[in-house]
Simulated scan of single mutants.
Amino acid sequence: MPFPPGPAGATMCTSAARRPAGADLDDEESTMSVQLTPYLAFRSEAREALDFWASVLGGTPTTTRFGDFGVGTPAEADKVMHGQLETDAGLVLMAADRPDEIPLESENAISLSLSGGADDEAALTRWFDGLAEGGRVHVPLARAPWGDSFGMVDDRFGIHWMVNSAGAGASDASDA
């Protein structure tokens, strides 16, 4: 049974499409509507990051502060306890400021991936360019050896993004 439609009418994958062959799920698990969503941690820049991503990807961030719930120290009252950005395209990012007593590692091995088909290339290019403003492009968004348009960029907050437009430039391959 497929998952219910996602935001903006997008259809989610069926659970069968994501589980290994031969793996059995009971009825409750096979009808779950669980989603995996990036939840990024900052020391004190979560609100600024969410506002930046909204300027690039669209949508309006929502946030709650530690002080809204009377938790944390007085110095943490205005920090983001939970923030979320949901775009019209159905993308969801969450972010929060870590409380001061919880370590925040500076090295990050996580990458966020934006990927779509050739019909999405204009939006993916616009998002890549927006993420690159004030950031660092590691691989310019261009035709990759596998035929897609691909690029890698760290945004101004040091978050690593990979952008891939499947099939983009495929018509160029026949011209070569």
Rank of each mutant, 00 (worst) to 15 (best):
P2V: 12
R18F: 08
S149V: 04
R126N: 09
A49P: 14
S113R: 10
A123F: 07
G151I: 04
H82L: 10
A77F: 10
T73N: 06
G130D: 11
G151H: 03
R65S: 14
R126T: 15
L141G: 02
V71A: 08
G151V: 04
T87Q: 08
L25P: 01
D100V: 09
E121G: 09
S165Y: 00
V163M: 12
R18E: 13
T14M: 03
G135Q: 11
G72Q: 02
P38N: 03
E45Y: 01
V56K: 03
T11R: 13
V153T: 01
L93N: 07
T87V: 05
M162T: 02
L131Q: 03
L124Y: 04
E107T: 08
W146Y: 15
I159M: 07
Y39G: 05
L124D: 08
S149N: 06
L36E: 01
V56Y: 08
V153F: 05
G130K: 03
V92E: 03
L85W: 07
A118E: 15
R43C: 02
P5L: 00
P20F: 11
A170C: 01
S165V: 00
G72P: 04
I102N: 08
G67V: 07
A41I: 01
G117A: 14
R98M: 15
E29C: 12
W53I: 03
R18Q: 14
G130S: 10
F150A: 05
S174T: 06
E28F: 14
L104V: 10
D154A: 15
A49G: 13
A10D: 09
A17T: 13
M12R: 14
G158R: 06
M81T: 00
I159D: 04
W53V: 03
D148T: 12
T125Y: 02
G70T: 10
W146S: 11
E101M: 05
D120E: 15
H138L: 14
G116M: 11
A109P: 04
L141T: 04
S33P: 09
A176V: 10
S111D: 06
A166M: 13
A168L: 08
E133H: 02
P99V: 12
L50E: 11
P7N: 05
F157C: 06
